[in-house]
């Protein structure tokens, strides 16, 4: 980390350009995909497991339609929800691929996201959970790195949930199922893929809510600045604690 100013609260470069570009592109994509996705879901708000599933089959979940405050567009228009969804799906999927390749190349994955030795030890994880529960956030140089819970949630989203969203989305495509027959085998059928797509979308919403909460608790101005400009001010030592 390159420090700009000496003293108790130095500004450091925290997020690379690739991370910042992808973060905001992805935020926009997920927003459009979620709202247009609910618009598409409204066309048949029932979910099934297996290869097939329609009105006469057993649905494991049956909901009413999501209201206009949830969907894009704000009135029922399956065709137009699909236009939004399928256009942003391309930006989202190729954005993720570009970001992953770029992050492997610039070692973002190896340096910032990979777990370090000892980090996954139960004692370390437990301490991190306790710190989070007490809202005791890292200070000084430790704040410049991701902590283990943070890493786990980023790794889970980037390497598991987002790829699952893309692959289950492709599994719902009859064209892609002909091109890649392993897709339906992987998820146990088109209707299972549709169910997993729906569940994973809500896991992303849960991630988003915790993510925003953490940003607010850790200092929204500093966090936002670091994700826009890259510069982050290291928090000083807490009162009554020695500086690290």
């Amino acid at each position: 980390m390159r420090e700009e100013t000496p003293g108790p609260a130095p500004l450091v470069r925290r997020h690379r350009l690739s991370t910042r570009l992808w973060h905001w592109t992805n935020a926009l994509c997920l927003y459009v995909l979620f709202t247009s996705g609910l618009g598409i879901f409204n066309a048949h708000p029932r979910l099934y497991w297996g290869q097939y599933g329609a009105n006469f089959d057993h649905a494991w979940l049956e909901l009413g339609r999501f209201g206009p405050l949830w969907t894009l567009p704000g009135h029922y228009d399956l065709a137009f929800s699909r236009h939004w969804h399928l256009a942003f799906a391309l930006i989202f999927a190729f954005g993720l691929i570009a970001y992953l390749l770029w992050s492997l190349f610039n070692r973002h994955v190896a340096r910032d996201l990979a777990f370090r030795r000892g980090e996954l030890a139960p004692r370390h994880v437990w301490r991190d959970i306790r710190d989070h529960a007490c809202l005791r956030f890292p200070t000084g140089a430790a704040a410049a790195r991701y902590n283990v819970l943070q890493k786990a949630s980023y790794v889970g989203v980037i390497f598991v949930i987002l790829p699952v969203m893309i692959l289950t989305g492709l599994t719902m495509s009859p064209g892609m199922d002909a091109a890649w027959p392993w897709l339906t085998d992987l998820f146990g059928g088109r209707q299972s893929a549709r169910s997993i797509h729906f569940i994973a979308a809500w896991l992303l919403v849960a991630f988003f809510l915790v993510h925003i909460l953490m940003v607010l608790l850790a200092g929204p101005f500093n966090e936002l600045r670091s994700m826009i400009t890259g510069w982050y001010r290291l928090p000083g030592p807490r009162a009554g604690e020695p500086a690290e």
């Binding site: 066309a43 097939y52 209707q191």
Partner: peptide, 12 residues
């Protein structure tokens, strides 16, 4: 074969 409706349901 599987018939996939644009609405989301499928029937074989």
């Amino acid at each position: 074969t599987r018939h996939d409706c644009v609405e989301g349901w499928s029937a074989i």
